[in-house]
Design a protein around this nucleic acid. Structure first.
Length: 540
RNA sequence: GACUCGAUAGCUCAGCUGGUAGAGCAAUACACUUUUAAUGUAUGGGUCCUGGGUUCGAGCCCCAGUCGGGUCACCA
């Protein structure tokens, strides 16, 4: 028996076993995955006909050969005016975006990764002999907006002073079977027929990226932000690491997890809500600084600022405290803003936000005192709940003291912190993984960075006293019994790691999607995530 | 989850007190050898989101649902 056959048999057995297993109920294929909608529009039929016609003419609409591209459109536009002699023989490739046919001459514009450039096609240049088929049929009739082509020729400037490619050779690289929305911009810069239905834009992001200028830029900036942070961390010698996404105990944050099941181990697993406890284990293991750009998953509501999967940067640095982290953060944010937007001041939602360091620091209880008049220090849970009610802040019996304080701050205070502000020194009940404040046992060494009334970062002097940590987890257990379904689970292995000793450490998490929103001026998280979560499209 | 707005041609949108659907772009055909929201002439293109109901008759009115946007709630 050959190896392949054996493997097939094994697989058959596996599949049989798999589908016989009563536990695997979630694998039933939903109906929206079953059928392909094959109804074609008039334009789709015509394009398929062109495709066949091209094949009959001996033109492969999907050729395999490498394309000898030697320049990008943007480079041509920038350099041609200065060094025209360099552009007597170019080859560019890209997608046809517009086509203007004027008898024996035509213009088209193509889009490559750098931008758009116009090309001029003259029939008798492209078809020097008797046979004008390539121009009259292939170019004029069978080439559509959306197709990929390569163009060889020289660069020149048209009468209307647009830098263009004078084409001597045109080759089809890939035929498009669906018509592209044609977005036009007039001389006033006004957009016409913009592809702007958010549902279509997010579901078909590829189309959004093709036809809507500026979308790509947002995502390029997103990567720039990540890269700038990597630079800052790597310069300091911190190590980029990866930690489990599938966790048996979803720890490190207060949130509802997604649940899944591992068949071989026959056990539940959770998609991580945070990687905090794993990164701290690495500090125990002897790394001085570790960081991870982590996809986290929270099974909660979705809105303009929440996607079920989102990206957090978490960083942990040994021998530092939260005060150091504040300075580190404000200088890094200033650097990121300057690098990605060219200025420390960014515009967001009609507001000017200045990211230049340093940022104001306000203890949370002071913030509450300022904006509500109530001093919550030394107040017990019942008293604080009473105050909350008097402020029209909703509370429920399952909320502990920490959550009530959080609710008061969230409702009455955070909106005022438009300019970057470190809110510091949270009450101990709100921060089960954070070290007690060096000057006040009722508080913790924690800050959250608020910008435009939204939390962007959260940081601690990390709790490294294993006995204190155990007690804090046990307090969370109490909250769980009260009905708080977000209270943290006890992670015994994490406690064990702390018992081996963790150096004093400061750690921070930054909501990357929200940071990118801020730096790109986007008010919806869906604008900064390539493929935001959506319900499946209906079929038929 | 609640409220609210929306879904009509490939795209963007009109569509009157209910009377068998329109425009621009895109497409097709013809003309045009430096245009640029190219232009001119002609043409084709529709499950009006789905399912019920009211009505002689529904894109429009009523009910239920689907998907999406916004606001709020939940939530970092």
């Amino acid at each position: 028996m050959g190896l392949g056959a054996k493997r097939t048999l094994t697989r058959l057995f596996f599949i049989k076993f798999f589908f016989n297993s009563a536990k695997v109920t979630h694998l039933k294929v939903p109906s929206y995955l079953c059928k392909m909608n094959t109804k074609l529009s008039e334009q789709e039929i015509l394009r398929r006909e062109s495709l066949e016609a091209l094949r009959k003419e001996g033109i492969n609409p999907y050729p395999a050969e490498e394309v000898p591209v030697n320049v990008l459109s943007e480079t041509i536009k920038q350099e041609f005016p200065i060094k025209p002699e360099k552009y007597t023989s170019v080859c560019v490739a890209g997608r046809v975006m517009t086509k203007r046919i004027m008898g024996k001459a035509s213009f088209l514009s193509i889009k490559d990764s750098s931008g758009r450039i116009q090309a001029y096609i003259n029939r008798d240049v492209v078809c020097p002999g008797e046979d004008k088929t390539l121009y009259n049929v292939v170019f004029k009739k069978q080439l559509d907006i959306g197709d990929f082509v390569s163009l060889k020729g020289h660069v020149f400037t048209t009468k209307t002073e647009e830098i263009s490619i004078h084409v001597s050779e045109l080759k089809l690289l890939s035929k498009a079977l669906k018509p592209l929305p044609v977005v036009k911009t007039d001389s006033q810069g006004e957009k016409h027929d913009e592809f702007n239905d958010p549902e279509l834009r997010y579901r078909q992001r590829y189309v959004d990226l093709i036809v809507n200028e500026g979308v790509k830029e947002v995502f390029v900036k997103r990567t720039q932000v990540f890269n700038t942070m990597r630079e800052v961390f790597n310069e300091k010698g911190y190590l980029e690491v990866e930690t489990p996404i599938l966790q048996s105990i979803p720890g490190g944050a207060a949130a509802r997890p997604f649940m899944t099941h591992h068949n071989t181990l026959d056990m539940p697993l959770y998609l991580r809500i945070s990687n905090e406890l794993y990164l701290k284990r690495l500090i125990v293991g002897g790394f001085d600084g570790v960081y991870e750009f982590a996809k986290d998953f929270r099974n909660e509501g979705m809105d303009r600022t929440h996607n079920p999967e989102f990206t957090i940067l978490e960083i942990y640095v040994a021998y530092k405290d939260y005060k150091w982290m504040m300075e580190f953060t404000e200088s890094m944010f200033e650097k990121i803003a300057r690098k990605t937007t060219g200025s420390a001041e960014v515009s967001f939602d009609g507001k000017k936000i200045n990211l230049a360091a340093p940022y104001q620091r306000v203890p949370i209880l002071e913030a509450i005192k300022t904006h509500t008049g109530f001093d919550l220090i030394d107040k017990n849970e019942a008293e604080i709940k009473k105050i909350a009610e008097s402020l029209d802040v909703e509370t429920s019996p399952d909320m502990g003291k920490g959550k009530v304080i959080d609710a008061i701050f969230g409702d009455k205070c955070e909106k005022y912190y438009v300019q970057p502000t470190f809110i510091t020194d949270y009450p101990i009940e709100m921060s089960p993984l954070c070290k007690k404040h060096r000057d006040d046992e009722r508080l913790t060494e924690r800050f959250e960075l608020f910008i435009n009334g939204t939390e962007i970062a959260n940081a601690y002097s990390e709790l490294n006293d294993p006995i204190d940590q155990k007690e804090r987890f046990e307090d969370q257990l109490g909250l769980q019994e009260k009905g708080d379904d977000e209270a943290m689970f006890i992670d015994k292995d994490f406690l064990r790691s702390l018992e081996y000793g963790m150096p004093p450490t400061s750690g921070m998490g930054i909501g990357m999607d929200r940071l990118v929103m801020l730096l790109t001026g986007k008010t919806s998280i869906q604008e900064v995530i390539f493929f935001p979560q959506m319900r499946p499209e209906k079929n038929e």
